[in-house]
């Protein structure tokens, strides 16, 4: 990454590493394309996670060595991957039974917008020239036990991605549990966005100004 100006908050790898800290040992996990994919590199020592890719593999391993890949062993992003010892292959209805039947523990997805009530928009800008493409996003958000979002806090134009109500087409209603951004970790609660943690060197006001809905501070009673 070029360093044109001093960075405030976490970079993409640091965001992935922060999410990795919160994934319990033994979880069955589905990771979206982009920053979520990087999480595998930062899983703390001693924890074992099993990765699901919805095109039909449980026990996805890392990318193959150069020249070792196979066109028919790919992930949901259509990139070549490997299978770990103990992996299994299966048909699509079984893969989505894992998702829709509530068998997966966690998915981590990117976002265009997250609303204060947990609504997620992450599949289409709704633009007149956009080719709509949804894939498995709508299945993941209704079926997986916990839904984490990892995203930049604001768009490239500086607009908040955490908003009062999504303006882009929705992926699901009230589905997001927790949001990890470059600036903060924020829970979606019945009261709205609840700050959990500020990134190093980032102030509450800095995050609140860049959040498009009220941000509840960490309760002082429990702060140590």
């Amino acid at each position: 990454m070029s360093q044109e100006r001093p960075r405030i908050g976490l970079d993409r790898d640091e965001m992935a590493a922060r999410v990795a800290q919160d994934i319990p040992d033994g979880s069955y996990v589905n990771l979206g394309i982009g920053i979520p994919e990087r999480i595998t590199r930062f899983v703390p020592e001693g924890r074992e996670l099993i990765y699901h890719t919805e095109n039909g593999l449980l026990g996805m391993g890392p990318s193959p060595e150069e020249g070792e890949g196979e066109p028919e062993l790919i992930n949901a992003g259509k990139r070549q991957v490997t299978a770990i010892p103990g992996a299994s292959y299966f048909q699509h209805p079984d893969s989505f039974a894992m998702i829709r039947g509530g068998h997966l523990d966690l998915c981590v997805l990117g976002a265009l917008q997250v609303a204060a009530n947990g609504d997620l928009a992450n599949w289409s800008t709704g633009g007149p020239d956009a080719i709509p493409a949804v894939g498995g996003a709508m299945d993941l958000v209704v079926g997986v036990k916990s839904v984490f979002v990892v995203t930049q806090h604001c768009t490239k134009h500086g607009d908040p991605k955490l908003v009062e109500a999504c303006s882009y087409p929705l992926t699901g209603l009230g589905c997001v549990d927790r949001i990890y951004t470059d600036l903060a970790v924020i829970d979606v609660t019945p009261e709205g966005f609840q700050l959990v943690e500020l990134s190093p060197g980032v102030s509450f006001d800095y995050v609140a100004e860049r959040t498009g809905a009220p941000l509840l501070p960490i309760p002082t009673a429990t702060a140590t």
């Binding site: 048909q91 699509h92 949804v134």
Partner: peptide, 12 residues
């Protein structure tokens, strides 16, 4: 346009 899991289940 059909969500992927819905597509799989519709076919099944």
């Amino acid at each position: 346009l059909v969500p992927q899991g819905t597509l799989a289940e519709r076919i099944r």
